[in-house]
Write a protein that binds this DNA or RNA. Structure first.
Lengths: 192, 192
DNA sequence: GTCTATAGGTGGATAGAC
DNA sequence: GTCTATCCACCTATAGAC
C-alpha cells in the first residue's frame, strides 16, 4: 500500500532476476548481469541471496504471492465467470506485452536443470492456477454462463496449457496479436 | 534407408546435442556434457562443429528435415483430415514419452539468448507447421470431416500453441496422461 | 550492507602432435 | 579425425576490510 519511491536492494535484485528469468531463462543470466544493471557488486548480491538457487526460489515465491493476489482481486470484483476468465487471460497478455514469458512457463522449460526447491515452486504454481481455473469453470457451468464437456479440472488444464503455449510461441512467432487470436479461440469455445 | 550399425561421429554428436537441447535447453548443456557421454574429447567435437551456434543450427536443420519428412509420410498415407491430425499429435506424444520437450518449443523459451541463425530456424519450423496444419484443416472443412470457426490459419496457430503448451506444462506437471487429456479436448472441438 | 580481491571451477574455443 | 595441452573469459561463491 505505502508507495516507497525506492525499493530496497533485495527487492530490486528480485525485480531484475525475475525479468531475466522470464526473458532468458534460469540458465541464461548470471549474477554479473544483475550486478551490471543495478550498479551493485556481485558480492553484495550474494549477501542478499547467498546462492542462485535461493535467488530463484525467492523469485518464484514472491511471484506466486503476487499472482495469487491478482486472482484474489479478480474474485473480489464479484464478476461472472466469463469476465473472470477474460481478466485471467489479460494477466498473461500483459506479461507478453513486456516481451516476457510466464515465469513458471519459462522455468518449466528449464525444469530438468532446476534445484529441487525451484521445481516444487513451479509445480505448486501450476497446481494453484488449475485449482482456481477449475473453480471459475465449475461456477460458470452452474450458472450457465460457460459451457464445456468433461470435467472442470480437465478444462482448466486445457486452458492453462493453451495460454502457456500461446505465450511461448507468440514471443518468437506472431507476437501479441497472434496470442490474442489464440486466446479468443480458446475462450469462444467456452462462452459461445 | 541402408541401416548403419554405427552412426558416424557427427551424427552421434547431433543425437546427443538434440536430446540435451530438448531436455535442458540450449544454455543448459555444454560441449563437456557431450564429450563425457560419447567418450570423445571436446576438441574433437569442435572439429565437427566449430562453434556451439553451428552445432545448434545444424541440430535445428536436421530436425526440420526429419519432421517435414514425417509430415510427408502422414500425407502419403492418404488418410482423411481427422486421422492426419491424430497422427500429428502422436508425433508430439512420442517426444513427450521420451521425457523431452519439442525441440523448437524449448528453443522458443531460449529465444532471446539464441544466435540469429538459430532464431530463424525456430521461426521457420513454426511457420512450416502452421502451413501444414492449415492445409489439413482447410481440406477437412471442405470434406466436412472437420468443423471450426474462423480461418484455417488461426485454427492452426491455436492447435500448435495448445500442443506446445500441453507439452511444456505436462513435462513438469501431469505427464503424458495430462498431455493426452488436453489433446483429446483440443481435437474433440474440431471433430465432434 | 557494500566494497575489493580472489578462489576454484567450467564455459567455448584453438594450436599442434599423432 | 582424434588426441593432449592450453587460453582466457566467465561462472558461482567466499574472505575480509570498511
Amino acid at each position: 500500500m505505502a508507495p516507497h519511491l525506492k525499493a530496497n536492494t533485495a527487492d530490486r535484485i528480485l525485480d531484475v532476476a525475475e525479468r531475466l528469468v522470464q526473458t532468458k531463462g534460469f540458465n541464461g543470466f548470471s549474477y554479473a548481469d544483475i550486478s551490471a544493471e543495478l550498479g551493485v557488486q556481485k558480492a553484495s548480491l550474494h549477501h542478499h541471496f547467498q546462492t542462485k538457487a535461493i535467488l530463484g526460489t525467492t523469485v518464484i515465491s514472491r511471484h506466486r504471492t503476487r499472482f495469487l493476489g491478482a486472482l484474489a482481486e479478480i474474485d473480489a470484483a464479484g464478476s461472472d465467470a466469463p469476465t473472470k476468465l477474460n481478466a485471467y487471460t489479460k494477466l498473461y497478455a500483459d506479461v507478453l506485452r513486456k516481451r516476457r514469458m510466464c515465469l513458471c512457463g519459462m522455468l518449466a522449460a528449464d525444469f530438468e536443470t532446476l534445484p529441487k526447491p525451484m521445481r516444487d515452486g513451479v509445480v505448486e504454481f501450476f497446481a494453484a492456477n488449475e485449482v482456481w481455473l477449475a473453480g471459475v469453470l465449475e461456477s460458470g457451468r452452474k450458472k450457465k454462463t460457460l459451457r464445456f464437456a468433461g470435467t472442470a479440472a480437465a478444462t482448466a488444464a486445457f486452458l492453462l496449457s493453451s495460454l502457456e503455449g500461446a505465450m511461448l510461441v507468440a514471443r518468437s512467432f506472431g507476437g501479441v496479436a497472434k496470442f490474442e487470436s489464440v486466446v479468443r479461440k480458446v475462450l469462444t469455445e467456452l462462452m459461445d
